[in-house]
Nucleic acid binder design. Structure first.
Length: 95
DNA sequence: CCTGAGCGT
């Protein structure tokens, strides 16, 4: 379960996202990936909560809302591909 | 690596 958050400010921190999302549920983790080529943030983040209903509540409450002078974008994130399968404990779905 | 699309080690 993960939530996609876009159109963020480049000055935003995971702590700020946690404080905002904590208003609608228990934030389990906040992830802000950076570009592997430059290392700068792309302006989006991922938020994981304890329950999917909490994520939905946060999405309905924060999507389209103005935050830090930016139009906040919140949606259901696409299932991330398991990249940890490369070394050990990975996709043992061997043919 | 300094910017504006939107989905990640």
């Amino acid at each position: 379960m993960s939530v996609y958050v876009g159109n963020l400010s480049y000055e935003v921190t995971p702590e700020d996202l946690t404080q905002v999302f904590a208003e609608y549920g228990s934030v389990k983790r906040v992830q802000i990936p950076t570009d592997r080529e430059t290392g700068r943030v792309r302006g989006f983040a991922f938020v994981e909560m304890s329950s999917e209903e909490e994520e939905t509540a946060a999405i309905e409450a924060l999507d389209g809302a103005e935050w830090m002078g930016r139009g906040l974008k919140v949606n259901k994130a696409k299932p991330k591909e398991d990249r940890g399968g490369g070394g050990g404990g990975g996709r043992r779905g061997r043919y």
